[in-house]
């Protein structure tokens, strides 16, 4: 197990290093941030001073060397925009996104598993058809459009919920609800498909011959086996949110890491971009480990 984690960490570490290098150079190629931060009428000297201060005048390779040297000392650089340590900015935003992901994925998982299992039990029944159709609709809907429609209906017309921002629990309702729909549709499809094949398996036939009641057949014999492919998809979807639910965070003015990344790229706040990438890469690595552990817990045949 330890050697397995070690191997995975090594692989992830290497691809993270590659990613950091790539993003470092690509993002510098997008242009000079000076004009974005100083007023239009700033003097040439002031501009030059800003560049000097932030080291933008040095060759790229020197800038990169300095960045790496700072990293080794645990310094992730300063945010140009907020004049605070970049990592502090990123962690603050990440906490918001983490909560968003946890709440959304918990709701999605519970709902998709229960509804998907029940749909699979009576394939072709009215419940199954409704669940299948609506999950397909959910999986097909663009989230930015759902967000807009939800805002028009619930915030503008009915005025039940706030349009954007944070503060009260009510601010969470729309983002979570909109984020919920796509993963729910996708995961429900997988649960249903996986459950159908498990319920037609030989060991479920044995359980029926044993006289096991219907509910334990679905939720004890069936579900644990059916969960294996489902877990992978749950992981993918959670990763997508952790990587930044950019669109949703932008529309709802939610101060998460997705919005932060986009803003930082547009404002060429390089240190923040790089710090965000590292944080979300670490988060996704941890989550993948959790998924693998869940796999091993569910299926005794899997040993790492």
């Amino acid at each position: 197990m330890t050697s397995f984690i070690g191997k995975r960490a090594l692989a992830s570490g290497i691809s993270l290093i590659g990613l950091v290098i790539l993003v470092f150079f690509l993002s510098r190629l997008t242009g000079d941030p000076t004009n974005l931060y100083l007023p239009l009428d700033a003097s040439i000297e002031a501009r030059e001073q800003f560049r000097d201060m932030n080291g933008f005048n040095d060759p790229l390779i020197v800038q990169f060397g300095r960045y790496v040297a700072d990293l080794v000392r645990g310094d992730f650089g300063q945010s140009l925009q907020q004049a605070r340590p970049a990592m502090e900015v990123v962690l603050q935003a990440f906490a918001w996104t983490l909560w968003l992901a946890v709440i959304t994925m918990t709701c999605v998982t519970v709902a998709a598993i229960v509804i998907g299992s029940l749909a699979a039990f009576r394939v072709g029944g009215i419940f199954d058809r409704l669940a299948t159709f609506f999950s397909l609709v959910g999986a097909s809907a663009p989230d930015f459009w759902l967000a807009i429609v939800a805002i028009v209906i619930f915030a503008v017309n009915l005025q039940w919920l706030p349009t954007s921002g944070t503060g009260t629990p009510w601010h969470w309702v729309l983002p979570v609800a909109v984020l919920f729909i796509r993963p729910f549709g996708l995961i429900l499809q997988v649960v249903r498909g996986s459950m159908i094949s498990v319920l037609s398996s030989a060991y479920v036939k044995t359980a029926r011959a044993k006289g096991v009641r219907t509910r334990p057949i679905i939720f004890v014999h069936g579900l644990r086996n059916a969960m294996l492919p489902v877990i992978t998809v749950i992981g993918d979807q959670a990763a997508a949110i952790l990587n930044g639910a950019v669109v949703i965070e932008t529309i709802f003015g939610f101060p998460g890491i997705g919005k932060l990344m986009i803003d930082s790229i547009l404002l060429r706040d390089f240190s923040v971009v790089l710090a965000s990438i590292m944080v979300s890469a670490l988060a996704i690595f941890i989550m993948n480990m959790l998924i693998d552990i869940a796999y091993a817990m569910l299926d005794p045949r899997i040993r790492y």
Binding site: N243, I262, I265, I277, S280
Partner: peptide
């Protein structure tokens, strides 16, 4: 392992 949307941006 790349955040694809970010990369696209």
């Amino acid at each position: 392992s790349f955040p694809s949307l970010l990369l696209a941006v």
